[in-house]
Computed example of a mutant assay.
Amino acid sequence: MFVVGLTGGIGCGKSAVTGCFAALGVPIIDADVVAREVVEPGQPALQEIAGQFGTEALDASGALNRSWLREHIFTHPDAKTRLEAILHPRIRHAMRQKLTKVAAPYAIFSIPLLFETGQDSGVDRVLVVDCPVELQISRVTQRDQATLAQTQSIIDSQIDRASRLAMADDIIDNSGSLHDLPPIIEKLHEKYLKLAT
């Protein structure tokens, strides 16, 4: 199975791009979606998180207390490493499992931290969705009601733009409007169909 790893900085428009590929019938396996699935109540990862971080990591209903965990990781850098050690192997395994059920010439792995987690070695081609940092900041602060400091800290925690672009096989410049995307994606889709056969 030919796999395209899609990545990009926060606010670059990865969801808009995967939406266009999905509209063309391309299966999308999204790391963010899988990350939510592996911490659902009853999943071993959730029990392990509660064991590592205490009951504060769970809300009153027994689900993951995301806001507490986000704050905890922000103030305890070692906690991020511990959380990733619980989640990343499970997310990778679940994504590979989903791939075995795909019946299409190629699939897209949408992974925001593709390079940071070393998963670029597990895909056949890397597609980077890109836009200038100023645009990332304005999109994220508007979309997530995030402060400038929060947004900047997320951008700083990701690989820098120049390095990301240097490691890309294909790049989509998403600094324009959403109407600009479909023709670009149709061209890439044709290219990936050829490469997959």
Rank of each mutant, 00 (worst) to 15 (best):
V3H: 07
V4K: 09
V4R: 10
G5Q: 06
T7F: 00
G9Y: 01
G9R: 04
I10F: 00
G11I: 00
C12I: 00
F21L: 06
F21H: 03
A23Y: 02
A23H: 03
G25E: 01
P27S: 11
P27V: 08
P27H: 12
I28L: 08
I29N: 01
D30R: 06
A31Q: 07
D32I: 09
D32C: 04
V33I: 14
P41L: 00
Q43E: 14
A45E: 09
Q52F: 06
L58W: 09
A60P: 09
A60Q: 15
A60E: 15
A60R: 15
S61V: 08
G62F: 03
G62V: 03
L64Y: 05
L64H: 06
N65D: 15
R70I: 10
R70T: 12
F74K: 14
H76D: 12
H76C: 10
A85E: 07
I86F: 03
R96F: 09
K98T: 12
L99E: 15
K101E: 15
V102M: 11
V102T: 14
Y106M: 00
I108R: 05
S110G: 08
S110L: 13
I111Y: 12
I111P: 07
D120E: 15
G122A: 15
V126Q: 01
L127F: 04
L127G: 03
D130Q: 04
D130W: 02
P132Y: 03
P132D: 12
I137F: 03
T141Q: 00
T141Y: 04
Q142E: 07
D144F: 12
L148Q: 11
Q150S: 13
Q152R: 14
I154K: 03
I155L: 13
Q158K: 11
R161T: 09
S163N: 14
L165F: 07
A166Y: 06
D169S: 04
D173R: 14
D173N: 14
N174R: 01
N174G: 00
N174F: 01
S177D: 13
S177C: 12
H179W: 13
D180M: 02
L181I: 02
I184T: 14
K187G: 10
H189S: 02
K194Y: 07
